[in-house]
């Protein structure tokens, strides 16, 4: 039992990271109906940014986290402006293929400059852990939970209580209706990319510290898993992305603990297939079929 609870905690910390990444997928999909396949690579850039600012600038945790979020946010907006905006009226498959292209560009640019070797971080967090009953929570896990909760609360506040959040929801709901209210659709889309990418940047830093590594292709598999998490929760749904991310994290951890680590990635696709069969719109999704 204690072993089980421990795995739940481990799963939730991994799941928090998936959730932060899944949010970006879901927000971008919600507003421009694009699966941004480059999103996992933004997360990778977050991990590298953290590596640089902590290793070479000696930044401590919170400033480094903010820099990661800002750098990734700006990168996300840049990608949207350069690669996706010109294609907004093009068939959806064109933008989708472009997103895959952008993903490769980022991955191989990083590989070119950074090499394929794995970077490790300077020691930033103390080696403390907490024993709660039979469960041990490490410092980094606590940091992951705290950051995730703070960012989720902040995001929920922005989306539900601010003018810009309302505009984001209005544009996702009805683009022409939003234009007729005087909302700038372009700016609103940019802000969506900014926020989604900043969350991925935070996730990238957290995962970098969790596993103490960053590498150019590190975004591929977690990116896909976060995408599955978004689909699981109902793509376009923000609570869905959170629940989906946590669920995928726990499921994966359980499979490794009680099954075989051979299946750690397979389980995610099995979940995806089951969701697509049983509830194609996802847990919190609206029940309309969307062709991707």
């Amino acid at each position: 039992m204690s072993q089980f609870l421990q795995q739940v905690v481990n799963g939730l910390s991994l799941g928090s990271i998936y959730a932060l990444v899944a949010l970006g997928y879901t927000m971008v999909y919600g507003i421009i109906k694009l699966i941004n396949f480059a999103h996992g690579d933004i997360y990778m850039i977050g991990a590298y940014t953290a590596f640089f600012v902590t290793t070479y600038l000696g930044m401590s945790f919170i400033p480094a986290l903010l820099v990661c979020m800002i750098v990734c946010g700006i990168l996300g907006v840049g990608i949207e402006r350069i690669a996706y905006k010109p294609l907004r009226k093009a068939p959806r498959i064109t933008a989708l293929i472009t997103a895959i292209g952008v993903s490769y560009v980022i991955e191989y640019t990083m590989q070119f400059f950074m090499g394929t070797s794995v970077k490790t971080y300077p020691k930033m967090l103390p080696d403390i852990s907490w024993q709660i009953g039979a469960v041990k929570i490490s410092y980094i896990q606590m940091v992951i939970f705290t950051v995730t909760i703070v960012l989720m609360v902040l995001l929920t506040f922005i989306i539900h209580k601010t003018k810009i959040g309302r505009a984001m929801r209005a544009v996702s709901a009805d683009e022409n209706g939003a234009k007729l209210m005087g909302i700038s659709v372009d700016n609103t889309i940019s802000i969506t990319f900014l926020i989604g990418s900043a969350l991925a940047g935070a996730a990238g830093m957290l995962v970098g510290l969790y596993y103490n590594s960053a590498s150019p292709l590190m975004g591929m598999v977690p990116g896909l898993k976060a995408f599955v998490a978004a689909v699981f929760g109902g793509i376009g749904s923000i609570p869905g992305a959170l629940v989906g991310g946590l669920f995928i994290g726990v499921a994966e951890t359980m499979v490794v603990a009680y099954g075989s680590s051979l299946y750690r990635d397979a389980i995610v696709y099995i979940i995806l297939i089951i969701v697509l069969i049983v509830k194609p719109a996802g847990l919190f999704g609206k029940n309309e079929r969307e062709k991707v």
Binding site: R166, A170, D174, A178
Partner: peptide, 26 residues
Amino acid sequence: LVQVPEGRHVFPGLSVYENLMMGAYL
């Protein structure tokens, strides 16, 4: 110069109050 479009185009997912506030966006 403000338009009420054909087919209403209210914002689903936003409350009635929030929809009204969108009118005051600018």
